[in-house]
Nucleic acid binder design. Structure first.
Lengths: 341, 341
DNA sequence: CCTTATAGAGTAAACGTTTACTTCATTTTA
DNA sequence: TAAAATGAAGTAAACGTTTACTCTATAAGG
């Protein structure tokens, strides 16, 4: 049973296709109330739905946007995507998801695909938009937005939190609670998104507080996972057993720290305090629950999507630095009063 | 700068659009090697990319599939989506994501949207495809697949694990490890996907082992989250303090159980053993780490997507019951030998 | 050397819409 | 009452492709 088209409707209702089209688009002109009713009725009973592809072709508007993620598995991407989709819906856009696996070839391939599919804009999430992609991005000639990532290209709005500042604040939070022997478990230092800036924030906070700040106070791993946190904390404890507070570059790492501390008979927060980063659901599930820096990923996704849609409509827009805040739970202990928050 | 079309390429290369088209589609006929090279070169230098929308229109193949989730946030959906996208890519399809928020109106709206966008198939994930949707599904006339959900409609292949059997096995695992006083923390009993069958599996295992099985041994909540697990365990401990083992309907709930146990000074697994469900990443992060029933969501997503693409190509296919297995970690204690696994 | 295959390349219709332009009947205006 | 204005409705071109069909020149066959 072939799908019915506007032609079928027109024939069935004894009007021209132009009339049907005008009625469907509610132009308000070009038909009488009577014919409108009649046509609507035939449409209803035929179960006709317009073909969005044909529409796109002539209107030159696909009504779609593309989202590139390194990988959609993982809480962070999931929440972002949720927000992205929600905002897109509001603006009447559909969302194509793409998993680049951080592979430049795959990324380029997806960009081409999105180009061919005539997407009206692209959200580039959690990755680095390098010069490599400049050519295709330029060719596509549609708005791009980076979400929690970085762009080597000019004039691409960004939605992100200020990682440096957030980590600075996290570190400072520990200091304000009386801690003076701090260490950090971090991701890879060459990760310009979540590595470098967070490490930098940690160092600056220490320096500004006139506390010692040696590079050995930072133990980094190749990623931000649970196991990475465990290992990093283990090595910190070897080299700096005097430490009383840890800033972790992700909640997962913080959970790893807690788990390892547990294994070593170190109590959290009595012996060592831990502050996390991300405020994922996980932060509520650890024992003790995690004090952490909140990044509202769903909101970030929403804002990114919103921003993109506004760009698409030709409004001019600007980058958004999301606010962060510290969510206080149970993993940080006040050591001695010292200008408490 | 307008996008260049096949016409522009044709003009530039001094050939007809038909020739360009044939070359692009690699038909192998209708052009000489020389012209092919020449045309490819002009294409390259013009930065031309074919318009997939125009192609779709004439070929009547959109190259897209749609995925409906109650919400893409959350580990489970995220992993599924990852698998879905991966398989779709292999089959050359792009993926539209939709968040229904379990709202029937929204769901219907999305189905219509997907219909208009001419998707070639739909994956209905983690939800119930009710009679409500029968009409539109029929009209769409494209393959549907349910993923970890249920369908009231006939002839819709399903990809799921046998929840009843999996919970039966989980319960049995505890029994085999010498536990005789069991309880369950469950989701809502009217949830036909993850509620009813899991409770049923628990009961059957007890019955088959000739153990007492009163409904008070199951404490259920309205959802499957951490807090739900906490509360449920609390109420179990009130009514059945003798219990030595808990089967939880999700890892999050199990984490809640562990957390609550901790708060009450009950040791896991020494005093009470816990088995989870899902084998999410969370299962490795609890202290102690969770023994749990593995559902490989990414694989499930992949298989669902694969199945759908096969349906699209007209192959006939059948539902897939995924295997489950029990991942042994630290949250279950062997009480006394009794025909151990 | 003439007929017939063959292969390169072009023409134009089709896909399902939208929309500028036209036609025609009815109403308004002077 | 004739001219002008209005509004309903139709005609056909356009969007960027694919493809069946056609045309022409060259190669093959007798």
């Amino acid at each position: 049973m072939k799908k019915s088209t506007i032609k079928d409707v027109a024939r069935e209702a004894n009007v021209s296709i132009a009339t049907v089209s005008r009625i469907l688009n509610n132009t308000g002109k070009g038909y009488s109330d009577k014919t409108k009713q009649h046509v609507m009725q035939t449409i209803e009973q035929m179960g006709y739905f317009p073909n969005a592809i044909a529409r796109s072709l002539i209107n030159n508007e696909s009504g779609t946007i593309g989202v590139l993620f390194p990988a959609v598995s993982g809480m962070v991407s999931a929440e972002m995507l949720h927000g992205i989709e929600a905002a897109a819906q509001v603006y009447g856009k559909s969302v194509f998801v793409c998993n680049t696996l951080s592979d430049p070839d795959k990324t380029k391939h997806y960009l081409q695909l999105l180009y061919e599919k005539q997407v009206e804009g692209v959200i580039f999430a959690s990755g680095r938009l390098t010069r490599n992609f400049q050519k295709i991005v330029k060719q596509m000639n549609v708005p791009f937005v980076t979400l929690s990532g970085i762009s080597d290209l000019k004039n691409i709005p960004e939605i992100k939190v200020d990682d440096l500042k957030a980590t600075y604040d996290a570190t400072n939070y520990l200091i304000k609670h009386g801690h003076t022997k701090l260490a950090m478990v971090s991701g890879p230092p060459h990760d310009l998104i979540a590595g470098t800036p967070r490490m930098e924030g940690f160092k600056q906070a220490l320096t500004d507080a006139n506390l010692p700040c040696k590079s050995s106070q930072i133990s980094w791993s190749s990623a931000f996972y649970f196991e990475d946190g465990k290992h990093a904390f283990r090595s910190i404890m070897k080299s700096h057993p005097e430490v009383t507070a840890i800033v972790a570059a992700s909640d997962e790492m913080a959970a790893g720290v807690i788990s390892e501390a547990n294994a070593q008979g170190i109590r959290v927060p009595e012996d060592v305090s831990v502050i996390g980063y991300d405020n994922t659901k996980l932060a509520t599930m650890t024992v003790p629950s995690l004090t952490t820096v909140s990044q509202e990923f769903d909101v970030m996704g929403y804002r990114a999507s919103e921003l993109l849609c506004q760009c698409i409509m030709g409004e001019d827009t600007d980058s958004i630095i999301m606010e962060h805040k510290i969510i206080e739970r149970e993993s940080v202990k006040k050591t001695k009063a010292r200008g408490v928050v």
